[in-house]
C-alpha cells in the first residue's frame, strides 16, 4: 500500500512541473492528476501547495469545493446518473433508485468488486433523449432500468475478459 502510494507521487510532480506555469494553474493540475491516477491522493496536496506558493488549506479547499475531484480511488468504471429536470420528466427518479438498488451502493459508493463507482450528475446536455447516464467518457440516452442493467453487465464482462 505504502509502496503503491510512493509510486503515485512522481506522477504528481510531473504534472505540476508541466502545468504550473499556466495562469490559474490549479484546476488544470488537479484535473490532470485525477486523469492519470483516477483521484487526487491527499499526499499530493503539500506538493501542489508548495509549487504554487499557496497554503495546503487553499488546495484542500479547492479540491473539496468541486464535486468532480475525489481524494480516494474510484472503481474501474464510473457510472453517473443524471438527476436534473429533463431526465426527471422521463423517469430519472426511478432510474436512480434502480441504479442504487441493483449496484447495492449509494451515490459516491463503489461496488464490492471494485468495478463500478456510482455518481450523480446534474445534466449531460442530452436532454432531448433523456434519461441519460454517463459511463466513463461515454454518454448514453433513453436509459431504461433494463438498458441500465445491460450496460452494467457489459462493464462487468469487459473486466472479466481483461483478467
Amino acid at each position: 500500500m505504502t509502496a503503491a502510494k510512493e509510486q503515485l507521487l512522481p506522477v504528481v510532480s510531473d504534472v505540476i512541473a508541466d502545468l504550473k506555469h499556466k495562469p490559474g494553474a490549479l484546476l488544470p493540475i488537479l484535473h490532470e492528476i485525477q486523469n492519470r491516477l483516477g483521484y487526487i491522493p491527499p499526499e499530493s496536496v503539500p506538493l501542489i501547495a508548495e509549487s504554487l506558493n499557496q497554503s495546503r488549506a487553499d488546495i484542500h479547499g479547492v479540491i473539496s469545493f468541486y464535486h468532480q475531484f475525489r481524494s480516494t480511488a474510484p472503481g474501474k468504471h464510473t457510472v453517473e446518473v443524471c438527476r436534473a429536470e429533463a431526465c426527471q420528466a422521463m423517469g430519472a427518479r426511478q432510474l436512480e433508485a434502480h441504479a442504487k438498488a441493483s449496484l447495492g451502493v449509494d451515490y459516491h459508493g463503489t461496488t464490492s468488486d471494485n468495478n463500478i463507482t456510482l455518481e450523480e450528475v446534474y445534466c449531460l446536455g442530452n436532454c432531448a433523449c433523456s434519461p441519460s447516464v454517463r459511463i466513463d467518457d461515454e454518454i448514453v440516452g433513453r436509459v431504461t432500468p433494463e438498458k441500465f442493467d445491460q450496460l452494467v453487465d457489459g462493464l462487468r464482462s469487459q473486466t472479466l475478459e481483461v483478467h
Binding site: 490559474g24 494553474a25 484546476l27 479547492v62 468541486y66 446534474y122
Partner: peptide
C-alpha cells in the same frame, strides 16, 4: 469540475483563477 455555480460569471472567473 462539476459545479453549477461556476456558470455565474464571477464564480466562473474565480474558478479560472484556480480558486473555489
Amino acid at each position: 469540475a462539476k459545479a453549477y455555480i461556476c456558470g455565474e460569471e464571477t464564480s466562473l472567473l474565480e474558478s479560472l483563477e484556480g480558486k473555489r
